[in-house]
Design a binder for these strands. Sequence first.
DNA 1: TGAATGATTTACT
DNA 2: GTAAATCATTCAA
Length: 224
Amino acid sequence: MSRLDQAGALPRSFFARPVLQVARDCIGRLLVHRAPEGTTAGIVVEAEAYRGPEDRAAHSHGGRRTARTEVMFGPAGHAYVFRVYGLHWHFNVVTGAPGEPEAVLIRAVEPCVGLDLMSARRSATATRARDLASGPGKLCQAFAITRAQYGLDLCESTSLFLAEIEGARPRRVARSARIGVDYAGSWAARKFRFYDPTSPHVSRTRAGTASRPTASPDTTTRHA
DNA sequence: TGAATGATTTACT
DNA sequence: GTAAATCATTCAA
């Protein structure tokens, strides 16, 4: 896996589907970022779906169409990047048809390529693989994803894209409620988070402690 | 024009 | 467990 060009990149048809399907199918795919200072890549092990106007947890709820959410109303496969808490970036991929403001939040990856570069971009205390990208903010820092990638077409870009992993073993995919969306009323309980329950690289609130979706996994499926 | 607020992470008590 | 860091976006006036 020394050469990571766009060969094997997921096509637009992958993203132009209902957001729940895309979120589930992102698990086990490879996120690749090629930068002048080096290439970083990791297997997606955690993703969340944010669905259209009716989802109170989504920035696009109620059809809110602003400068920030604009890209979500466009065609699938583009990057929706935004800042939260004034310091962290979050990376999403737009899904569905144009006019449907849906996106998948990539929350965690299992680092595969460029571990040293990820570590250098993160704080000096983040040296273990499971500390590099086990959370949406950490992931963006490790992959150097910022506002500069807002609106980027992942289906055309050769610098940032999702790719198929040849010969990948089937992964377990569990579901739970999303994290950090308690304000969303009944939508907070929806099981819109997908993750690999066997991976040590999913997000954590504290080292050694699994993030706490109060709901236990209820759906575990196998898929490639 | 101004105030409130996060789809979080980290450090400290 | 609790708190601080930190600012673009959003909404109210």
